[in-house]
Amino acid sequence: MTGALRAEWTKARSLPSTGWLVCVVALGMVALGLAVTGTLRVDECGDDPCVLDTVRLSLAGVNVAQVGAAVLGVLLVTGEYATGTIRPTLVSVPRRGEVLAAKVAVVGVLTAGGAALGVGGALLVARAVLPSRGFTAEAGYPDSTLLHDLTQRAAVGTVLYLVLVALLGVGIGLLVQDTGGAVTLMMAVLFLGPVLALFVSDPDWQAWLHRYAPTDAGLAVQATRDLAALHIAPWPGLGLVAGYAAAVVLAGGVVLCRRDA
């Protein structure tokens, strides 16, 4: 198993795309977070009292970061099929379950690393920017600090969510094999739910989409205010995404083990 792990780690590190995609995860979190928090104004909030979830807004970069995570997971699998290196991989490590486990571990660690940097960076940026936009303690917005339970949950949850998205990418990569097909399917998985919810007028269907679509369910964990309005509770939402990821990775694993290479 250590051999498989070292091989997958060396493989991932020796491809330029890996570094770029980890950067997309980290910088996507920070950059989109800055774009959102840097343009917020407390007096334009509308509602009174104003209940903007600034933590969640600070972490809005997850919408970009998840694309990087998804493509990272997909590419580390489909790249092997596209270039034919799947054969040397399986000749080097004929126990295919080990190959899958090692890929899951490496993709998980890489994504978690990029996501932790990105989430940390986005929260720091928000802390620096928000007070100047009027979100002060006096206005009801204490600094977002990781000492705060809900902020902590949002931060850790976002990292875990991105890891799960990357693992979904691994599973879909194994099932589809083709890079273009797998990336397209991955984007559909991430964005179809939220997009459909915009256009569906029936409130029951809308609620159902918000509850079960992976992006909406998984990102409930980012909420720190108005928790009663959530369609699914934070941890169960993330748990649901974990279930999706586990099912797809297992299906991919079964296909990997059964199929001729």
Partner: peptide
């Protein structure tokens, strides 16, 4: 069956380490 973006030595390194 070699990844075009990978350096020759790295291709052998991952196999060796496996």
């Amino acid at each position: 069956a070699v990844h075009p973006s990978r350096r020759a030595r790295d291709h052998l390194l991952w196999m060796a380490r496996s």
